[in-house]
Design a binder for these strands. Sequence first.
DNA 1: TCCGTTAATACTCAATTTGAGTATATATGG
DNA 2: CCATATATACTCAAATTGAGTATTAACGGA
Lengths: 301, 301
Amino acid sequence: MPDKQTHIELIAALTAVTSGVPRVMTVRAGEALPSGPFELGHRSLQSGLREWIGDQTGHPIGYLEQLYTFADRDRSSAGGDEGRTISISYLGLVREQAAPGAGRPGWHGWYEYFPWEDHRDGRPNCLLSIAKGLHAWIIAEPSRREHRQRRTDFAFGLDGSPWNEDLALQRYELLYEAGIVAEAGGKADPATGRPMFADHRRILATGIARLRAKIKYRPVVFELMPENFTLLQLQRTVESLAGLTLHKPNFRRLIDQQELIEETGGMSSETGGRPAKLFRYRHAVLEERALSGSRLPLSRN
Amino acid sequence: MPDKQTHIELIAALTAVTSGVPRVMTVRAGEALPSGPFELGHRSLQSGLREWIGDQTGHPIGYLEQLYTFADRDRSSAGGDEGRTISISYLGLVREQAAPGAGRPGWHGWYEYFPWEDHRDGRPNCLLSIAKGLHAWIIAEPSRREHRQRRTDFAFGLDGSPWNEDLALQRYELLYEAGIVAEAGGKADPATGRPMFADHRRILATGIARLRAKIKYRPVVFELMPENFTLLQLQRTVESLAGLTLHKPNFRRLIDQQELIEETGGMSSETGGRPAKLFRYRHAVLEERALSGSRLPLSRN
DNA sequence: TCCGTTAATACTCAATTTGAGTATATATGG
DNA sequence: CCATATATACTCAAATTGAGTATTAACGGA
C-alpha cells in the first residue's frame, strides 16, 4: 500500500422553504447530499464550497455555516482501508425560488427523511411505531434499561417530558443506536423515514437541529424569505422549520419587539382574506446583532 | 511536485478553572495550543484526540466538543505550497486539579491572551487603548466607515450598546481585521494581549465564545468543578468564565430552580465566613437535559 | 469576651416578559 | 349583502427576572 491518501470531502445540506415545506437539495434521486472533493486551489473551505455549489446548481448561497467534521472509520462510505475520508459538512440557506427545471438536482422535503419531526398537525402517527421499536431496544439490555428509558423519554417527549424540537439530532442518533433506522440495519418502514447514502441523513439531522436552535437567537430566517413578505408568510416559514405551530398574536409581538423588519408600503392580497402589509428585512441596520440576551443573573456593579 | 500531502492536525483548547482563573493548556512556553497529527489508526477524531491528550498530559478529559475546522491558506502556518494543513479544533474541559509538576505543559490564564475580556472588576483599562486603535481603523476607509463603526460599537459595547460576553470571537476577529493584534501585524502592546503561534489564539477565542454561550443552556460548568463544591465556588467559576460578576441571590435562585445539584450533607469552612453547605452535581438524573426552553411563542393546539 | 468582618441563606417586591385569549377591520366570492 | 378568511389591535393574568434587604453563623483580634 504505497499511497494511503486522505481525501477531504465537502458536504452541503442546502435548505430552502417553498410553500410551507422546508426542503434540502439532493442528488442521486434524493439519496444523497451534494458533495465534492476539496481542491487544493481553493482559498478556504467556505470559498471552495461556494464556488462548487455555484457551478453545480444555479443557486447562490446567502448563508453558509460549518456543521461538523467527521472521520469515523466505521461510518465511512468506502469501507476498506484504502485511505480515509474526512467529511466537512456545511449548512447553507437558499432563498425561495421558482421550482427548479428538469435535469437539476432535486429538492426534497425534510420530513420525507424525518417524518417524526413535523408536529404542525399534532404528534405524527409514525411516533407510535417508533416508540414501539425503541421500547424493544430499551428492554433488550436490562443493565442499561433505565438509562435508555430516560434518554428516550427526554428525546421524544414521552412520559411527561415535553416535545423539544431542538433535539432532532439526538433523536436520529438514538434511532441509529437502537438499530431502527435503515442506515443502521433497521428494516424498511415508512415510519422511520427515507434513508440516505452513508451518513448523509445524520448530517441533515445536524443541520436541522442547528437551524432550529439558531432561529431563536439569530435572524437567520430572513435568508430563506423573499425580499418582501407578509407576517404570516414569515410565521409559516418559521413553523415549517420548527415543525410546530406558533401563536399568531404573540409571534407578531415578538417580531416587532426585535425591530428586525420594516413595512415596504406595499400590500399583498394573495391569500384570500384581508390584504396584508408587506415587510422587508432591515439588512442595513442589523447585520450583526444578537437577539436574546444573557440568561445569567448579572449584578450591575 | 510529486506528493502534495494533506496533513490533518488536531488542536485542543483544554480549559480548567483554578482559584477563580480560567486557564488553557499550552505548549512552547504559552505560545501554542497542544496539537498533533491525526493518525490513520484511530477509530474516530474524538478518540484520536482523547488518546493523544491522555498520553501528552496526565489529565483525563471529561468533556470534549468539536469547535471548527480550518483550512484557510492565508492563515496556514507553513506559508509555502508544500501541501496543505487541515486543522480540526476541539474544546475540552478538565476538572480542577493540583498545580501540575515541572516539565508538564503549562496552564496559562485566558485573560493573559484576552485582557479585554475580563469585566469582573469593571471595564478593563486596556479597552481604552483598543478603542483608540479601532477608531483609527474605522476612519481609515471613509466608504466603510459607518459599517465598521456599527460593528465595533456592537462587539465592544460602545456608544450605548451593552457589553455582551458571548461575542469574544467577533471581538478577536475584528481586532485581527483591523490589524491591531500581533498575529495580524499589529505592534506589541500589553493591551492587545499575548499573541500565539499561527491561528491558535483565534481557536482559543472560538472556545471561549462557545463555552460562554453554552453555560447558559447546558450544565457544562460541572465538568470544571470538583466533586463537592459550595454555591459561591460555583458562582465564582461561572463568573470567571463569563468575565462578569453575577447577582448572588438570583444566581442561587436560578441554580435551585434547575434542580441540577443536591446537598452532600457536608459543610465547608474554608473561606472565613459562615460555613457553607457542600453540593454535588446530580449526574444520574440529568445527563442529557436542556435547560432553557423555546423562546418561540408556541400555540398549544 | 465582645465586636467588626466575611460569608451564607432567606425573603420581599416591583417591573418585565410571556402565554392565552378576545375584538375589530378589510378583503373575496357567491 | 352575507359567509368566509385573514389581518391587525388590544387585554389580562401568570410567570420570570432584576434589584435589594434582613438575618444567621462562623472567625480573629482588641
